[in-house]
């Protein structure tokens, strides 16, 4: 909100480069840019295979796979709430689409539509429960996380008789759905997944909403000072429910990619990813308390995470220590990130 205002003020006075630069380094994501450069340089020096374009496309794919839900989670966190159900909600969506298409419709697009409605409904339910119970979103979405995890397993077993969904690749509409959600392009001789472009598009849309629309102002307001925002006429309940539905939409989108790229889905997948989404948003500059953050930052956070998990393999470090290295790199990137942010805001 304050950014749009500063810019309007500035245009009146035709700002110099110095002022623009000063405004730029005060952006929430500036620290994560430093962290990303650090991780990139580190692996570029240490890991020879990391330097190839083919490796870069794998890094981008991994970043996008974690980054798409993280964009919506970042908006939600700016609005002052958590969603712990986002990881398994992705699996819920792919399971629902697969089973509905197979058992009821016979066409995958009907399943895709069904899953979209379901995912939006889950998001709306999270928001509704939050408002009705007045509990912290941490507790509300922890409950829905556990419920969805149980439903994924139980309903899949009930409907298919197995714990993974069947093969939908022979149903009508599969090829067109695969083209939309999981096609690959050759660019500079590397095969790039379509979700990388969707990821960038979602970041642009989310940034536009945050910085250029009234809804964006509302999101910052409900996250920063909820009750006083309501007092000045911000529709707090609608904004919060809308943000949870945004996470639902992102979960649906990622779920469709998983379904059409990997064809069958195991009902136990997705657990643990919710924390990675939140971590990316925080690395990217979102505050855990709400009211501050950016969608671009979440994307850079995703990029840091993608580079780290892939880079450790490209560097050929001892596989037994993999998770430890991930933790160390993340800590390193975040500490560096916080240091840069302090320097930037001090200046």
């Amino acid at each position: 909100m304050s950014d749009t205002m500063t810019e309007q003020d500035n245009t009146a006075r035709a700002p110099g480069w110095g002022q623009r630069l000063a405004a730029l380094i005060k952006r929430p994501e500036i620290g994560s840019v430093g962290g990303a450069i650090l991780v990139f340089v580190l692996f570029f020096v240490l890991a020879e295979p990391f330097r190839s374009l083919a490796s870069f496309s794998t890094v981008l794919y991994q970043s996008a796979a974690l980054g798409i839900p993280a964009v919506a989670v970042a908006l939600l966190m700016i609005g002052g709430e958590f969603d712990l159900s986002a990881g398994v909600a992705v699996t819920t969506s792919s399971l629902a689409a697969s089973m509905f298409a197979m058992q009821v419709a016979g066409n995958v697009w009907v399943g895709v539509g069904f899953a979209l409605i379901l995912s939006l409904a889950i998001g709306a339910l999270n928001g509704y429960l939050l408002i009705k119970t007045g509990l912290h979103s941490f507790l509300v979405t922890l409950s829905t996380f556990l419920m969805l995890q149980g439903l994924n397993l139980a309903v899949t077993k009930l409907v298919t008789g197995n714990v993974a969904t069947g093969d939908i690749s022979t149903l009508s509409g599969f090829d067109s759905a695969r083209a939309v959600f999981s096609s690959y392009f050759m660019i500079f001789g590397m095969s790039v997944s379509i979700i990388v472009f969707y990821w960038l598009a979602f970041v642009v849309i989310a940034t536009w909403i945050l910085l250029r629309t009234r809804i964006g102002n509302w999101i910052f307001a409900v996250g920063g000072q909820g009750e006083s925002a309501r007092a000045v006429g911000v529709p707090l309940n609608k904004v919060k429910i809308g943000l949870f539905m945004g996470v639902g939409f992102a979960a649906w989108f990622m779920g469709m990619h998983l379904l059409f790229d990997y064809v069958t889905v195991q009902s136990g997948e997705g657990v643990g990813n919710e924390l990675l989404y939140i971590a990316q948003a925080v690395v990217g500059g979102c505050l855990l308390t709400g009211g501050y953050g950016s969608a671009i930052g979440a994307a850079i956070g995703g990029f840091i995470f993608g580079m780290t998990t892939q880079g450790i393999i490209y560097a050929g470090w001892d596989p037994q220590w993999f998770m430890f290295f991930v933790g160390v790199m993340l800590l390193l990137a975040t500490v560096f990130n916080a240091w840069i942010r302090r320097q930037a805001t001090r200046g």
Binding site: T58, Q266, Q310, I313, G316
Partner: peptide, 18 residues
Amino acid sequence: NGQNMTSVRSRLLAKLQQ
């Protein structure tokens, strides 16, 4: 990580490239 298929594929692909 067996509970995250995108990471299974990305890490395996990375290892084959490495």
